[in-house]
Design a binder for these strands. Structure first.
Length: 421
DNA sequence: TCTGGGGTCCTAGGACCC
DNA sequence: TCTGGGGTCCTAGGACCC
């Protein structure tokens, strides 16, 4: 059996840990630049605040209901996520951290009283040790565990645990689950299947010809069919693999026209990509740089471009990656536009130790690597980007709008001290 | 009249996830 | 005034090889 543990309204719950008087009150967390609602407490959902709704359109509703509104604080959420994972890892040797707020746990071959009790103790332990409420779904396959979890969230609020351990229970939940709510069914397939009269997960399993599923939904659909039958068909990824692409792209806090400001932003995004590459001991051989205007501002002239750069030798040096990113920006930047967003993406990622050398390489890579190592060490200890390249600047015209940012309670040394006092 | 049969690699685009 | 930012996998089709 497999458990899916999912943190309830994760970002909102993270904020509530440190402001416990918000318990039972509506809380929302906004996307970058305080743009859209990306997390809602149950109370906020009940008021009718929609996921993804632009915050400025919700202004009245938020004010009227006295909703606590937060800018997103990914440093805080990331740290709390790690803590949750650490506790979960004590329940099983095989765990897959599927996302910032979800993990699959392999519960096969383990001796406990009952799966329900085990699931319940997972929930209680996380609540006690971290303070985050979680829901646990347990079933024979990942897809069914997802489904059990969703069922528990909607119908088993008192326990927060549901186990699909009999045919009857599985059938009931299959019939209860709408097709568009099945893990792996998105907008496209959802609409098409519904139009065909496939309304529930049970319909999908019982009414469709497997050959049709294979040819219209590829092998992904075929696996889904098996998973719904209770035959595990999705691989475990309990060993964390290095990422194949890393993207740092942001909308600016305000529109920018000046090339200097955009250069500063791109240099910072490039530096962030480089740091992420080093963290997983990899190098990049190909970069993309992109800039675009604000598509929502129809009164503005629109412009969007991106460029691909092949690097002569794969690298993870901030200096080199910044240099190439700015070279790309030089080519695609055009004066006279109101730019809203820029980004750097690194691809063709290879392990540090497998980089193809070049006979004509001019870089002193050993020296550079040593410098980066020192830079990372300093910045990990004393704060992100404390030591930076001059081009990364201090003007930060591009920085995010974060009017309601909470402190980094668990990672900022000053905050940690304040709490202890 | 009629012209083989096997592969690999790469890319763009589509679909999905949180 | 104001509308997020990350990722993954799969397939078809083209270009190429012998």
């Amino acid at each position: 059996m497999i458990a899916l543990v999912d943190c309830n309204n994760f970002y909102a719950s993270c904020e509530r840990i440190f402001q416990p008087w918000l318990e039972n009150k509506p809380v929302v967390v906004l996307s970058n630049n305080d743009g859209c609602v990306i997390a809602r407490s149950e109370e906020a959902k009940e008021i009718g605040i929609e996921m993804g709704a632009p915050a400025f359109m919700m202004k009245e509703l938020l004010a009227k209901n006295n909703v606590a509104v937060f800018s997103s604080n990914y440093t805080l959420y990331g740290n709390l996520s790690e803590r949750v994972q650490t506790v979960l890892a004590t329940f099983t040797p095989k765990i897959e951290c599927y996302s910032i707020d979800e993990a699959f746990l392999d519960l096969s071959d383990m001796k406990f009283t009952t799966l329900f009790k085990y699931g319940f103790s997972i929930r209680e332990t996380i609540r006690q040790n971290i303070g985050i409420p979680v829901t646990v779904g347990i079933a024979p396959s990942k897809t069914l565990a997802k489904m059990a979890n969703r069922y528990a969230k909607k119908t088993q609020r008192h326990t927060g645990v549901y186990v699909l351990d009999t045919k009857e229970k599985i059938n009931e939940v299959l019939n209860w689950t709408q097709i568009e709510d099945v893990w792996g069914i998105g907008g496209q397939h959802g609409r098409r299947l519904k139009w065909m009269g496939i309304k529930t997960a049970a319909d999908f399993l019982n009414k469709l010809n497997p050959d049709w599923v294979r040819s219209n939904m590829t092998v992904v659909g075929e696996r889904m069919l098996n998973e719904l039958k209770g035959i595990p068909s999705i691989e475990w990824e309990d060993i964390v693999k290095p990422k194949k692409g890393i993207c740092t792209a942001r909308s600016f806090g305000k529109l920018l026209t000046d090339k200097k400001d955009i250069q500063e932003a791109v240099a910072n995004y490039a530096s962030s990509c480089a740091a992420k590459l080093r963290k997983q001991n990899t190098c990049t051989g190909q970069m993309h740089v992109l800039i675009q205007t604000n598509v929502h501002r129809t009164q503005d002239k629109q412009y969007a471009r991106n460029i691909t750069l092949q690097l002569p030798v794969a690298t993870n040096s901030s200096a080199e990656i910044i240099r190439f990113a700015l070279k790309g920006l030089d080519i695609i930047y055009k004066p006279g536009y109101n730019f809203k967003k820029a980004g750097v993406i690194v691809m063709d990622i290879v392990p540090e130790k497998e980089v193809q050398q070049s006979l004509f390489d001019q870089e002193d890579r050993k020296r550079d690597a040593q410098l980066m190592k020192t830079l990372d060490k300093v910045n990990t200890r004393f704060g992100k980007d404390l030591v930076r390249f001059a081009i990364q600047g201090y003007a930060r015209q591009w920085r995010l709008k974060q009017e309601r940012l909470s402190p980094c309670y668990t990672t900022d040394i000053n905050q940690v001290l304040t709490i202890k006092i």
